[in-house]
Design a protein around this nucleic acid. Sequence first.
DNA 1: GCATGTGAATGGATTCACAGCT
DNA 2: AGCTGTGAATCCATTCACATGC
Lengths: 220, 220
Amino acid sequence: MSTVQRSDRESISEMTTERLSVYLRCLESLDETTISSRELADRFHLNAAQIRKDLAHFGEFGIRGVGYNVGRLKEHLIRTLGIDRSRHALIVGAGNLGMALADYKGFNSEGFRVVALIDTDPKKIGQASKGDITIEAPAQLGEIVRRLHVEIGIIAVGPAEAQAVCDTLVEAGICAILNFAPVQMRLRDGVKIKSVDLRINLESLSFFLKNAEDALCDTG
Amino acid sequence: MSTVQRSDRESISEMTTERLSVYLRCLESLDETTISSRELADRFHLNAAQIRKDLAHFGEFGIRGVGYNVGRLKEHLIRTLGIDRSRHALIVGAGNLGMALADYKGFNSEGFRVVALIDTDPKKIGQASKGDITIEAPAQLGEIVRRLHVEIGIIAVGPAEAQAVCDTLVEAGICAILNFAPVQMRLRDGVKIKSVDLRINLESLSFFLKNAEDALCDTG
DNA sequence: GCATGTGAATGGATTCACAGCT
DNA sequence: AGCTGTGAATCCATTCACATGC
């Protein structure tokens, strides 16, 4: 076989994985049939050597002296990332954020689909999002996961409930979780949690602003 | 002076900065007046040596043989992160995501406040979010930034418009940007961009799921 | 005695630079 | 000639381990 998964799967780092996703996106916006690592890097503010190294983890996909075949590489990345088939997600927490995510286009394309919304609030249960996903009670969670083949759990509840929701999701057999609650999650092996922490991001920006101010004061 | 900013400000890495934010959050949920790096690490799944090293960048804040004074350390982190005063943010894009963010509690506490919403859609202009922030036209952007002292720009538009919005924000004098659009932003120096990329996060989870499946097949 | 602060050691990730192929 | 794939070199981050101070 030519496209062997050569290195141990475990050895691919998170950083590399995330860049594969970036590369795929970049390739999708290209018209040409072939591109070199250098040109890809130049156009999208990436690093050519890193592109080559990242891709080389999974086999030899380029042609020396020429570059990469765009279509073939896209196909390959799609398979590698496991998005060659649709994956179902469920959102817990039908507040502002949960509802927005349920209807967010990025979530409902490219092989991902939000198939259910869960909330504890009895007033919300039975209502539906704009995209017509009905809000269900937490008691339904396990059954929904099984019936609709949910693979990804999205936590969009407040910090107080987040850990409990996480535990419930894992209990129900979910082992890939996207967490929006600003908490330090307890991690379990066999379960992957990616956290999107707006507070950390904002505070990081604030730190940058503060240092810019201070630098200005010092020199001024 | 005792609490000198000892190392060059530029030398603090992004990773360290983000952890400062985590430490602050952890400290906020504590009752005791004193805590050791070890105990902080144990409780919140962190690393004790790393906590000490991160904190040591900014001076000597602990007491040997005792640990850190929680209140004092919180104060210090708040000042270091520059959130000892309120910072104003403006959101561009009043779609599902933008509106949800405008009303998101995490954005409107702890020293951050969304003070304006911008959208190109004439039908939306003049309307207000639940939290009562009026949607304004893009033409107003520069004036709003100046009048309301906006320091942070939040990009919640689609991928096609994101780079243009980013350029406009920088033009208006914003140098801290939180980007939600799934694009590779062109970066300029003096401007800090943090991107929250849901697609990358989802694809990363998918990659994990796919490998878990494959591993199962191999051994099964 | 106990926990900080910190050099030294380790471990990863990025970048360089070139051999090898088209 | 040109570009990939990759060992070697470099850079950065984390962890160890202990001297220092309470």
